[in-house]
Structures are given as structure tokens and as C-alpha cells.
Amino acid sequence: MTEGAVAEGLRADQPSRRDATGQAAETIITMRELSLSFRTAEQPVHALSEVSLDIARGDFVSLIGPSGCGKTTLLRVIADLERASAGRITVNGLSPEANRLARGYGYVFQAPALYPWRNVERNLQLPLEIIGLPKEERAARARRYLEMVGLSGFEKKYPWQLSGGMQQRVSIARALSFEPKLLLMDEPFGALDEITRDKLNVELLELWARTGKTVVFVTHSIPEAVFLSTRIVVMSPRPGRVTRIIDCARLPRERNLDLRETPEFLEIAHEVREGLRAGHSYD
């Protein structure tokens, strides 16, 4: 059942994987029968079970599913924060570890994870210091990316002086600052109120269009997933697995919040909901 669904998803997916020039887009992440079990006192927990998925360059892929479906774990495997116990995975053509060491991705956590003893500018420069960029370059990058997330003028503020939404924008700018091709986002707006979340969703799409990054985005909000994504990967728990992959090519790439009232949008949202329900009935 699981394998069938995945294979079907992959097949259904193939024709649409083309970029603007009509060429088949380059695959940036490949996963084949990826499994991960955590050993616990009682019995092993299968966080991921035989996940196969390709993500093309320039894609905006959302992983959606209920708690415990392994969506965050999958993201952490891509980031080499967890190791898969079986299966193959390459990121940017490298192993996850090699890709991490090459600083091939930027990661945005659910919490902003800003250092309270650093002001906004110096928080943004943290990865740049670690990479060892010269001072002028660090300052220039901080200015550029703060401007990109609309926070010019807040350079000298400390995190506690910013709202939650602003803090998360700093953390996105920080992930972009060292210019990785891949952006991994783990429910970045999960802790924010609906209005702020809508606003940041629009901004994130603009950023994505401007920078051409590949984004893998974990969420448990259906409207958020449909609004942002080019593809939605529906997952279900126990064991964590992919049950359906939904293509959003029906929606235009240029999007605004009005899109959420259109029949195409509602249709995709319905498909996602169906997918989630199917995953639950499996239990």
C-alpha cells in the first residue's frame, strides 16, 4: 500500500518536473527507501519507513502531516541532524554530511533561535563569522539580507526588543546570509498568529521568487502548504511514511492571498485533506 502510493505519486509527478525552459529540472535531493528507527526502552519507534522522494531545483516542497508522522525527522535527515538507518539519500549530489560540511543548506527552526547576547546584525553575521568571511563582507551581507526581509534600521536592536514575527524574519535572513541553494524550514511560522503568518507567507513567496532557492517546508497547516508549495508531500504516522504527493502546478507561480478563494486552491486543499484522512484510517 505504502510503496504503491509512493510509486504512484512519483509517477504522477514526473511530467510536471520541468523548469521554465521546458527542460527536465535538475534533481537536488534524492531519497530512496529511507528508513529511520529510534531505539527506546520498550520497542523501536519507526520514525520513517521507506520514504522515496525527489526534489527538483527551484521547487517549493511542503511536508504536511499530523504530529509524529516524521516530517520534521525527514527534514533533519536532509540536514544531517539525524542519520537514516537504511536507504539512500543525496543532497546536492553529496551525502547529507558532506553537504552539511559544504554548508549546502540554510535551516530555519520553529523557534527563531537568536542569541540573546547578540544584536540583530551580529545574529545575522553568526554563520558568516563561522565561515570566516571578512568583516566588510559580513556587514554588507547583513545589510543586504536585513533589507530583503524588510528589517533595515533594526540592526542594533536586541532580539527581546523585536516581535515574534520580526525575530523569525531575522532567522530567515540569517539562513539566507551565507547563500545556500537549499532552504530547509521546520514550521517556521507555527508559533505566530494567523495575520502575521499570512503576511510572512506572502513575503516568503517573494523571497523564493527573487532568490530561486529550493525550499523544503514542514507545516501542519493545509492552507499554508497549498498557498506556498509547488508540490505537497502528505505524510502519516506509525510508521512515518509518504502517503501522497500532490502537484500544485495548477496554481500560478505568482500568488497573493486572494488565491485562497479560487476553486483550484480549494480543490488542492481538499485533496490534501483527503490524503491526511486516508493516512489516519490506515491505523
Partner: peptide, 8 residues
């Protein structure tokens, strides 16, 4: 984890 993603 954040430091790890930077390979610090």
C-alpha cells in the same frame, strides 16, 4: 543544532 547546521 543551529551551530551544527553551520558545521561549526
Amino acid at each position: 543544532d543551529l551551530m551544527r547546521t553551520y558545521s561549526a
